[in-house]
Design a protein around this nucleic acid. Structure first.
Length: 493
RNA sequence: CGGGGCGUGGCGCAGUUUGGUAGCGCGCUUGACUGGGGGUCAAGAGGUCGAAGGUUCAAAUCCUUUCGCUCCGACCA
């Protein structure tokens, strides 16, 4: 009941007491820390329905930023946005056998419209392959109609048994790209291209280093030929699937009859891909960068990159206010800045509040600073505090924000490297999965039985099969057969 | 779906063992003094104790049923 002691404010070191007391320290209870952060930073609130949530403005702003930055990349790679219905006739979902088997346990049903019982029950989309393929079967006739490169931003519903804010909710927001191609090679290229878009986005904008690879049969998308994945390591040593890209092959094209007449006068099925990332990315952001004081948002993704906190004393109130308003106006064209000139909160209160919300940089301006022609800067990521002459501020800010972004990535990268281990000793592996977690790079024979055994023994799963890397004459980590693949193991969310 | 924890002012909790006038902290309101790391003082507002049924002179407290949340597992973005 350490947790309760903490919450009621007892038995805490004096040092900690100075800071945000509503947040349970990571070291005490990681899950509780996560929940405290999302609630206290006003990212979300629980809905009156299990597994559902409201995404509050400060959480949604992150999603908007993610949308903006990703959507730009989708457009650059030739994709267009569209929108498809939220409801899918059940018979459509049923067409692809593997697909329906994978999703039927978690679909939500609509059986009534008003007072009338529907003759054809509908399901709320858990993903849109089925309904989109139904459209594509009509839209695609000729090789001239290919490729189809469409994306949609929407919500989906999966009736989950256990849910956690952002990481797994029954309804979540995402984007799903759905493409059709003339050849297998082209589809494969598309699937890998979008995987790389995700990886690059997550690393560049979110400052989260990610490993990419292919999913095993056990872990792949229901109905896909191959599934590729972007995996990130959270600060508790568990892996999180941050994005997926599927080569669907012709599985859906066959059952939905998506055909085109090729130049050689042959009627052929298209080759398809689908790929997506969700609001789960927000969960990843929190768990990769956050600390005991709350969120830390990388500057490129931050709604506010810097917050100006004036120190308003009775005597100097007017001139400080005037100065910060001017500073705010000067900075506005160049960085996303917020002036917190509320007078009903003390500066110290604001420091804690903005730190909890993860604003990358704080700019303090008080009477002493005005006298000396300077401002005080405090970095959220490492707490570093330094004085900058006001004249230099303008020139230094962009570089400083970039520095913070880089340092955050570097820190996450180092964490991942320290927590990526490898070896061939199964006992050691079990021990590491139990004690330290993190990624474990090892060789695997390809037998699902070994994969299953690992899961039973350690709760870890194969997160992905590493691209272009084959074991050299090694045995499988689990059995004594010859290894075929190099894989990352980890306990996952 | 299994196992644990929890439902009491907006939030966090005490009170339940042993039935007897609903309490504390934070937040909120008003005012004054304050203001460089969650300020101080004063005066206030706010609760059918998750719901239903039962036992009793009397139920937050005992009994039965039920609903919800949450954590951990099994299943999944």
């Amino acid at each position: 009941m350490t947790n309760l002691e903490h919450k009621s404010g007892h038995n805490k070191p004096a040092q900690e007491k100075e800071f945000v007391k509503e947040i349970t320290p990571k070291s005490v209870d990681y899950s509780q820390w996560y929940v405290d952060v999302v609630l206290k930073a006003k990212m979300m609130d629980y809905a009156p329905i299990k597994g559902f949530m409201a995404i509050r403005p400060s959480g949604f702003a992150l999603w908007e930023k993610i949308q903006e930055l990703l959507d730009r990349r989708f457009k650059e790679t030739g994709h267009e946005n569209a929108y498809f219905p939220m409801f899918i006739p059940h018979e459509l979902l049923e067409k692809e056998a593997e697909h329906v088997e994978g999703f039927s346990p978690e679909v939500a049903w609509v059986t009534k419209g008003g007072d009338e019982i529907l003759s054809e029950p509908l399901v709320v989309r858990p993903t849109s392959e089925a309904i989109i393929c139904d459209f594509y079967s009509r839209w695609v006739q000729s090789w001239r109609d290919l490729p189809v490169l469409i994306n949609q931003w929407c919500n989906v519903v999966r009736w989950e048994k256990s849910t956690r804010p952002f990481l797994r909710t029954s309804e979540f927001l995402w984007q799903e790209g759905h493409t059709c191609h003339r050849t297998e090679e082209e589809a494969e290229e598309e699937a890998l291209k979008m995987l790389e878009v995700y990886r690059e986005f997550i690393e560049t904008e979110m400052a989260i280093p990610a490993v990419v690879g292919r999913k095993t049969e056990r872990e792949k998308f229901a109905g896909a030929l191959r599934t590729y994945t972007v995996e990130a390591l959270m600060s508790d040593g568990r892996a999180l699937q941050a994005g997926t890209s599927h080569n669907l092959g012709q599985h859906f094209a066959r059952v939905f009859d998506i055909t085109f007449l090729d130049q050689d006068d042959q009627l052929k099925h298209v080759w398809q891909t689908s790929w997506g990332v969700s609001t789960r990315l927000i969960g990843a952001l929190i768990m990769v960068h956050g600390d005991d004081r709350g969120l830390i948002i990388p500057p490129r993704l931050a709604t506010f990159q810097a917050v100006i906190v004036p120190i308003l004393t009775k005597k100097d109130r007017e001139r400080v206010l005037e100065a910060v308003h001017e500073l705010n106006n000067q900075l506005k064209p160049h960085i996303r800045v917020k002036l917190d000139d509320r007078e009903e909160y003390s500066p110290g209160w604001k420091y804690n509040d903005w730190e909890m919300r993860g604003v990358p940089l704080r700019i303090e301006v008080g009477p002493k600073d005005l006298d000396k022609g300077q401002v005080v800067l405090v970095r959220r990521d490492n707490g570093e505090k330094f004085v900058v002459p006001q004249k230099e501020l303008f020139a230094r800010l962009p570089g400083l924000l970039e520095q913070i972004q880089n340092d955050m990535l570097q820190k996450a990268l180092e964490f991942r490297e320290v927590n990526t281990r490898s070896g061939s000793d199964y006992e050691e592996f079990k021990h590491i999965m139990e004690e330290k977690r993190g990624f474990f790079l090892a060789s695997w024979c390809g037998d699902p039985a070994c994969e299953e055994k690992v899961k039973d023994d350690t709760k870890a799963t194969i997160r992905c099969i590493v691209f272009d890397k084959k074991p050299e004459n090694e045995e499988c980590l689990v059995c004594d057969k010859k290894a075929k693949e190099v894989v990352y193991f980890a306990r996952a969310y």
